[in-house]
Design a protein around this nucleic acid. Structure first.
Lengths: 190, 190
DNA sequence: AGCCAAACGGAGAAGTTCTCCGTATCGTAC
DNA sequence: GTACGATACGGAGAACTTCTCCGTTTGGCT
């Protein structure tokens, strides 16, 4: 993990501007917002945007990084302060919310290819999988969740709910989450 | 439901050619395949493609119509020939398969807007919801499925699995379906 | 002050969706 | 079998997108 030299001040400033513009644009238009338009809003040329974020995916990841970190922190807080089953449930609800915001940006990120994560090392997939594991493991141990359940399972299920309900209301999404949350609980006969 | 006059023979031929080209293209590239390229493959101009299918959505629907009809027929066969719980389970597996083929074309269709279905009356959403209801109702009645379960619930859950696993292998999708299938069964305490 | 690596920005290539309208064709009425 | 009008064709092109290339500018070190 070599770290080259520190970026020039204008580079840093422009990167921040692009990120701010991207946040706005994704909030309004969703994950498919025009990158050209984002550059324009940020007051930089398209070339500058692409230098900082070679692929749309990188911009998604950068915009989400902060939120994902919060989500990871939340996992630890919940795991520390609540009964395992309850913590899992609460975290899944928070994750669903995350996956649905900005017209499904978070959910889209989870469904994207993912081979070889973005340069500026922040691996959303891994971070979320890790957080899920930290709320899931205690629940599994205490018998509050199925013993055969993996972090990937819960993450993909909830991301799926987010993706299939982006165009529908939040109440639909919560209804579906109620159903799968049920599926994750340990079963008497299982 | 006025039906104007019968379409001209060349119109019908071109429509079929476009449909065949679209099937190929979607199979190779997924739901986002270039419509221009589809027109080119079909040997027609872009204008012709757009006259027959004003929106990408219409082309999706037309390509899927036949498959969806098969899926609906399957629902009836299963409902007639198997125990309710088993029929539901088998149909969900078939639906998942459908939703995943062509890089998630079927799943994408279910997630698309849907206000005002395509002109040439075939409403994929309604058809699938109807089929789901026909396998779900008996299961509900016999206590093989949760009493509070609606057709929309199962359809959206399975579509979600399809969407979140398009980039992953089929074994992931089946794994997730096993989990939600469990959730749909009636629970002892519930 | 001077230098140069780093960064900028915008023109433009290539691709997309979708429209418009002059032209060709089909099917019918004679 | 031919003339005619409604129907349908097709491709040029407008407006957009993504992404690249390269001449020009600028920040920060010596």
């Amino acid at each position: 993990m070599r770290m080259g030299r520190a970026p020039r001040s204008d580079a840093r400033r422009n990167r921040d501007r692009v990120l701010a513009a991207a946040r706005e644009a994704f909030a309004e238009e969703g994950p498919g917002a025009s990158l050209n338009e984002i550059a324009r809003r940020a007051g930089v040329g398209p070339g500058t945007l692409y230098r900082h974020f070679p692929a749309r995916r990188d911009l998604h990841a950068a915009v989400l990084a902060e939120r994902v970190e919060r989500l990871c922190a939340l996992a630890d807080e919940l795991a520390a302060s609540r009964p395992a089953g309850e913590a899992l449930d609460a975290w899944l609800r928070a994750f669903l919310d995350h996956a649905r915001t900005d017209h499904g940006l978070g959910g889209a990120m989870m469904a994207e290819p993912g081979d070889g994560e973005p340069d500026l090392g922040f691996d959303c997939h891994a971070a979320i999988r890790g957080a899920a594991e930290r709320v899931l493991a205690p629940a599994r141990d205490e018998g509050a969740a199925r013993a055969d359940l993996a972090a990937d399972d819960v993450v993909q299920l909830v991301a799926g709910i987010a993706l299939s309900t982006v165009r529908a209301g939040p109440e639909r999404a919560e209804r579906l989450l109620d159903l799968v949350a049920d599926a994750l609980r340990a079963r008497p006969g299982g």
